[in-house]
Design a protein around this nucleic acid. Sequence first.
DNA 1: GCTTGCAATGTAACCGGTTACATTGCCTCT
DNA 2: AGAGGCAATGTAACCGGTTACATTGCAAGC
Lengths: 348, 348
Amino acid sequence: MVTIRDVAREAGVSVASASRALNNHDNVTAATRDRIRAAAQRLSYVPHSGARNLTRQKTDSIGVVLPDLFGEFFSELIRGIDRIAYAHGLQLLLSNMHGNPHEATSAVRAMRGRVDGLLVMPPDAQHQHLIEALSPAVPAVLLNCHDPRAGVPSVGIDNEGGARAMTRFLVERGYRRIVFVSGPRNNRDSAARQAGFVAALAEVTGERHPLLIAGDFSEASGAEAARLLIAGRMPIDAIFCANDMMAVGCCGVLADAGIEVGAEIGVAGFDDIPIAHYTAPSLTTMNARIAELGAAAAEKLIGLIMKPGSRPEPTVLAPQLIARLSTVRGEASRRANTSKILQKGKSS
Amino acid sequence: MVTIRDVAREAGVSVASASRALNNHDNVTAATRDRIRAAAQRLSYVPHSGARNLTRQKTDSIGVVLPDLFGEFFSELIRGIDRIAYAHGLQLLLSNMHGNPHEATSAVRAMRGRVDGLLVMPPDAQHQHLIEALSPAVPAVLLNCHDPRAGVPSVGIDNEGGARAMTRFLVERGYRRIVFVSGPRNNRDSAARQAGFVAALAEVTGERHPLLIAGDFSEASGAEAARLLIAGRMPIDAIFCANDMMAVGCCGVLADAGIEVGAEIGVAGFDDIPIAHYTAPSLTTMNARIAELGAAAAEKLIGLIMKPGSRPEPTVLAPQLIARLSTVRGEASRRANTSKILQKGKSS
DNA sequence: GCTTGCAATGTAACCGGTTACATTGCCTCT
DNA sequence: AGAGGCAATGTAACCGGTTACATTGCAAGC
């Protein structure tokens, strides 16, 4: 491998001059600069970034530590992060703990000396542990994880507010008996969305004991919830799923049972994954603005890198309600709907 | 920042012993090893990977250079790559040239000394340029880019074979007048798919001048193609789009025009993006197995890293036909379909 | 008792850059 | 002419690890 010393020798100068010439420092003669550049060209010299990072004490890259790589979430997030990183000339070092919370610490440690800052999305479990593993020396921003005690900067989505907005919207549209399908136990997003739903429903309709079904964010669990509702002949007229995939599963089962989603029963999701636009009927949902989440986190991290020791306020992004056809009520009245569910329930 | 020298001092040993103890070398007494470990713990020492990489001449990470981060492609690819990288304890360094071919060279150079190998997906234009920029010293695998001349190892999808299979399938299903909607000019995937379509159609039906419409992989261009066909009253009974997004656009316009996709006109795509499963009707397509592409490329790269100088054969993955409802013919005969298109064309 | 051998530990070079500081050489000013 | 100043260039230390080689100390063998 050709090093800067080879270039210096080839050009007949010292390594210092070579370094200066190649880094556009202005304290080299134009003549020697050209000579050095030519030598580098001749030897097809490529600087060794690792070595460069070591002396300059900066790496021009940021680490991204994620709990897993499932779903739309991660790609949107990366897209947002990348946009900002690119604008600042930074590379992305990706680390995935593959759903294993024990990997978290080692993932964060492995980043030491390879990145200028860290974007960390803690897994649902043991995130306290992870936060403690963060070295105070390397700037870090937490993704989607409010942690009021620890002073680590964070960027998150207002899941609770989003769920409140959706709940109010459903009620405004005339839906009264709304059931909520939750995500995995312990999941922070799901818990916040459920809290928003419960609070808004109490406020708006006075309902104190709303119906809740446990799901796990998978399409299958959404389908299962719908089957449960049909079999149980529950008198409901809308289903609010904690994420879109479950809503999609729901819709599939309802359609198979001959129940017209939208007209007869409202279905809403959360996330606004691309699929939501294309299902039949298209799905009413909250756009979680995940790319913007990533971008905001990257911006915040870069600010932190440039101004170490600052303690920025947590950012909370408001999701946006996207009303589509799955919540357009048909001619049938609410009572008629409910009874229809009961009938269809038998035939399924 | 605490370094290994700090740890050594704290434990009252030399840096060599500290390094040995921390790296599980067996030539240290258990007693001193424990003493050093304890000291490291006390100082909460985290090794500086950058420095480590420099001396060991290996970084335990691989670089991934992509033309952009659009669509499903990239997330699936990363997922596949990550699976293998993780299994081998490697990190991923991501670089995105943001659709700018001129960035390619600098992206590859920036990786020098930070990765043990490179996974490169050349942009459509100027990929020759990029291949030349690859240093022979750092192992690299080309993604989705056959390059028979240059001896760079590669992994790709058999786009042509896939398109042939789909074309034959459509003909078997009874579709006769098939139009192909291509992707962007210069796009390698699109060109190969088109070639497969043209060849298979000539083989199977003897058609020498198949209908081709130029698209650009966007949903809008698929919609535009459908509008063109309707307005032009083209006597066709199936549309084969070079990717799924265009097929989705097609279906939307056809449905709006009152033409029943599947029954009256077949529509097929390519890629099998998640949406394809959920559209109404669900979309017949070729599963491009992108995650497997990434995984295969990562495997090949790791092989190359472990056995430098080897010249593995290019890998070509066969895509898989996924027959769904958009190509299920209804009762109406082909002739009836065509005339119906003509009628509907007027009314749109 | 003295050499030999071996295991544990220490010293210092090295990886490939950057840069503080030293040196050189030339120009200008008195 | 000599001092002073400044710009160009060179020397060598340094970043934080790893490791070849040197050294030490102790047990075994003669």
